[in-house]
Simulated scan of single mutants.
Amino acid sequence: MQTSSSSSSSSYTSNGEHSKRCISSLLESSCLEKPLKIPKTKEEEEEEEEEEELMSEKNPRIQRYLIAIEYIGTRFSGSQKQKAECRTVVGVLEEAFHKFIGQPVSVSCSSRTDAGVHALSNVCHVDVERISKRKPGEVLPAHEPGVVRKAVNHFLQKNEGDITVIDVRCVPSDFHARFKAQERTYFYRLISGPEPLSTFEKDRAWHVSEELDLASMQKACRILVGHHDFSSFRASGCQAKSPIRTLDELNVSELASTPYFPSIVERQNSILEQDLLNSSCLSENELSLKSSIPNPYSVTGSSNSSNKGFGQLRSHRCFVVTARARSFLYHQVRLLVGLLKCVGTGNLKTDDVQRILNAKTVTAASPMAPAYGLYLGNVKYEFP
């Protein structure tokens, strides 16, 4: 009996030890397994970037510069860095800075522009630590803004020459080009007329062969300006948390088609016409004189264009849409311009504008205007 009891006891002990070893091995194997990676949201990525920037604030040797740049967007795949083989505004700018200071930098843009979109003034910030090339451990005083502008432009001109630094300013280490922006202004150029577009305007404006009704387009602008839900003018892929935006300005104006070099007669007639328009009271003779003045903005097919000599380009009309707001939704300006164009050609009535705005779906909007007519005009800041 004792033998049986001791045998049973030893069997129980060995089984218990075996179970413990199994549990221990399972725990060890589970600890060695890598946890599943949860993809980060855009907001989390931006928060990490901000944390990295806050860490850089603690380094007094780093100087942050605010850089204003202009560029022709034709040969760029947008402003933001993408794949290695894609040529982008930020990528070219970082490369120029790297050649200038001898170490890599990270450039942050105030506004993202798509492939083909131009900028009269986009703004970025970049942190630079000036280290002596002769004595790598020696930290030197920060470069003056004028030196940065001249040096970076030197390297940019060796890379296609389609981007230029137009202004540089020293700012505090917590000044963010994107989040500190108070206002952004975009311009969109439309060239109207049945004649082929000038070679000088290629990839610089949207050529609309039909005649555009300026008054109808301006009426449509008055409906769209203000505080609205712009879901109908928000392209898929927009990462903004809300479609609510305040459009501070939206208007259409007519300007001289460029390149335009008026003759002395045209300039004199233009001055005379402006004087007559500014007059508070026009006599019958003055009204008759005003109607006889040739209009340099007239569309091809008018009596003025028929007087063009051989080898002279027929006149077009140039319209510029101005959109100004603190921030815009993805493709909002191009969708707005697409709608205004349809109103200008008569394909849509001004009543349709309110209907499309109220629909709150991008499927109700008109086809989007092409990228190459869009210009980021200005980014406004309040400096400390």
Rank of each mutant, 00 (worst) to 15 (best):
H154Y: 13
K380Y: 14
G16I: 14
I223V: 15
F319G: 00
P172I: 06
V265S: 13
Q157I: 10
V333M: 02
A177H: 02
H143K: 07
S306M: 07
E33N: 12
Y372G: 00
S9Q: 13
N304R: 15
C318D: 01
C124M: 04
S192R: 01
M217G: 02
S279C: 10
N159W: 05
T3L: 12
K37F: 11
S24F: 14
E45S: 12
C124Q: 02
D351G: 05
K83C: 05
S257T: 11
E183K: 14
P384N: 06
S270C: 04
T3E: 15
F155L: 09
N378D: 15
N295Y: 04
K20H: 10
S236G: 13
Q332D: 02
L156D: 00
L27M: 07
E210P: 05
T361D: 13
Y297W: 13
L120P: 00
V265F: 11
F155Y: 11
L36V: 15
G346R: 03
S110L: 03
Q2K: 07
P194R: 06
M1C: 12
N347M: 09
Q218W: 08
S232P: 01
S6F: 12
K99E: 09
D127H: 10
L214C: 10
G377A: 14
S25W: 07
V333D: 01
H154D: 03
V321P: 00
V128Y: 03
F310W: 09
E249S: 10
G344H: 01
E33T: 15
R317C: 03
I293C: 07
A181I: 13
R355S: 14
Y186F: 13
S216N: 11
H125N: 10
E138R: 11
D352W: 02
A256K: 02
P296W: 01
G16E: 11
P262F: 08
P384C: 05
W206G: 00
L212P: 00
E138S: 08
Q182S: 09
L374H: 01
S279R: 09
L140E: 11
Q332Y: 01
S106N: 15
P35I: 10
Q218A: 06
Q63E: 11
V252Y: 00
F233G: 00
N304T: 14
E160A: 14
I38W: 08
G78R: 00
K219S: 12
P141Q: 12
T345W: 04
R245C: 05
N307R: 09
E47G: 06
V117I: 11
N269R: 02
G346T: 08
E160V: 07
L214N: 03
F200K: 12
I38H: 12
V321M: 02
R169I: 07
L27T: 11
H316Q: 08
Q218E: 08
K360E: 08
E266R: 05
T258K: 05
A364M: 04
V353D: 00
F233I: 06
K158D: 05
E195I: 05
D162E: 07
Y71V: 02
G193L: 03
G161I: 04
L212A: 03
E266A: 10
D275T: 04
E49C: 14
H18N: 14
N304G: 05
V299E: 01
F230P: 00
S10M: 13
E138A: 13
S216T: 05
S291E: 08
A365V: 01
